[in-house]
C-alpha cells in the first residue's frame, strides 16, 4: 500500500466533500490514530496486522484531506512512551516504519507529483541508525513540495518537543544569536517543530491528549470519536469538519514577527537541513 491511496473516493463521496468544502475547512488538522490494537483484538488478528491496517487508513485519509483542500496534516505515529511496549511490538512497529519509508523513497516521483512534503517530528536520536537515515532522506527529497504538508510525530511527546525547543532557544542566547528579551510565547511557538492545528481528532473513545501537541492545541477544536482508527471513514472525517465549522474560533491575523526573531529562526532552519544532509551522507 502506498502513501497516498488513489481511487478511494466514489463520485457521491466526492460530491459530499465538495459540499462540505463550501464552508471553512481547517488549515491544519491533527490525528491521534488510536485503536489499532483494539481493532486487531476485535478481529482476532496479530497486533502488527492492526498497525498495518492503521497505516492503510492513514493513506486513505491523506487522499481525503487532499480532496478537501486541507494543506497540513499531523499524525501521532509513535510516542516516546511507546518504547516501553513489548520488544516484539516495538520492533514490529520499527519494521513497519522501515518498510513504509523505503516504499516512500522508491515511490518518490508519485509523492512529488502529488506535492506532499514530509516532516518527521520527534527526538530522532532515539531511532535506530538506518531508520533515522531513511526519514532524513524522505524529508530532504520532499523539501520543496507545497500542496500538502504531512507531519509524522515519531519518537515524539509534546513535553519533549517543548524541551528541545527550550534547548535551542537557550543555546541561541548563549551564542549571541538571540536576545533573552526576545524570548516569549510567540518565539517558542515558532521554534517548535509542529505548527498549531485548528482541529484535533482522536479516535477510539479516549478523551485525552496523551502528550500530543500540548503547546499547539491550546486553542484548537478537540474532537473525540468512538470509532477505532482502522474503521475511520470519510463520513467520520466530514462529521469532524462539520463540528469544526460549527464551533471554530474566528481566524486571528498573525502579527508580523520581529526581525531579530526571524533571523534566529532562519538560522535554526538552515542548521536543521544541514544536519539532515549530514545524516544522509555519512
Amino acid at each position: 500500500m502506498s502513501w497516498v491511496k488513489e481511487d478511494v473516493v466514489s463520485f457521491f463521496q466526492l460530491f459530499c466533500i465538495k459540499v462540505v468544502k463550501t464552508g471553512r475547512v481547517p488549515q491544519h488538522i491533527a490525528f491521534i490514530m488510536d485503536g489499532n490494537r483494539r481493532y486487531a483484538k476485535k478481529h482476532n488478528e496479530k497486533t502488527a496486522a492492526g498497525h498495518s491496517k492503521g497505516f492503510d487508513k492513514l493513506s486513505e485519509t491523506l487522499k481525503w484531506c487532499l480532496d478537501l483542500g486541507i494543506p497540513e496534516v499531523t499524525v501521532y505515529a509513535f510516542s516516546i512512551e511507546n518504547f516501553k511496549r513489548s520488544e516484539e511490538e516495538v520492533s514490529a512497529l520499527m519494521d513497519l516504519a522501515r518498510d513504509k519509508f523505503q516504499r516512500l523513497i522508491d515511490e518518490i516521483d508519485q509523492i512529488n507529483e502529488l506535492g506532499v512534503r514530509m516532516h518527521i517530528a520527534g527526538r530522532l536520536s532515539l531511532l535506530p541508525e538506518d531508520l533515522r537515515k531513511m526519514v532524513s532522506q524522505a524529508m530532504l527529497a520532499t523539501r520543496y513540495n507545497n500542496k500538502l504538508r504531512l507531519n509524522i510525530a515519531y519518537a515524539y511527546t509534546g513535553r519533549d518537543e517543548i524541551s528541545r525547543a527550550a534547548s535551542l532557544i537557550v543555546d541561541g542566547v548563549k551564542n549571541n544569536e538571540l536576545l533573552s528579551d526576545d524570548i516569549d510565547d510567540e518565539l517558542v511557538s515558532h521554534t517548535l517543530e509542529l505548527g498549531e492545528p485548528e482541529l484535533l481528532v482522536r479516535t477510539s473513545g479516549e478523551v485525552r491528549l496523551s502528550d500530543f501537541m500540548l503547546w499547539q492545541v491550546s486553542n484548537s477544536v478537540l474532537y473525540f470519536t468512538d470509532v477505532l482508527w482502522p474503521e475511520f471513514t470519510i463520513w467520520n472525517l466530514l462529521a469532524a469538519i462539520i463540528h469544526f465549522q460549527r464551533h471554530a474560533p474566528p481566524i486571528k491575523d498573525e502579527e508580523p514577527i520581529s526581525d531579530s526573531k526571524l533571523q534566529f529562526l532562519e538560522k535554526l532552519e538552515d542548521r536543521r537541513w544541514r544536519d539532515l544532509e549530514k545524516l544522509v551522507n555519512c
Binding site: 509534546g158 517543548i162 500540548l214 503547546w215 492545541v217 491550546s218 486553542n219 484548537s220 477544536v221 478537540l222 474532537y223 473525540f224 474560533p249
Partner: peptide
C-alpha cells in the same frame, strides 16, 4: 471541547 489555553 477546547483547552482554552489551559496549562499545556
Amino acid at each position: 471541547c477546547s483547552a482554552h489555553g489551559f496549562l499545556p
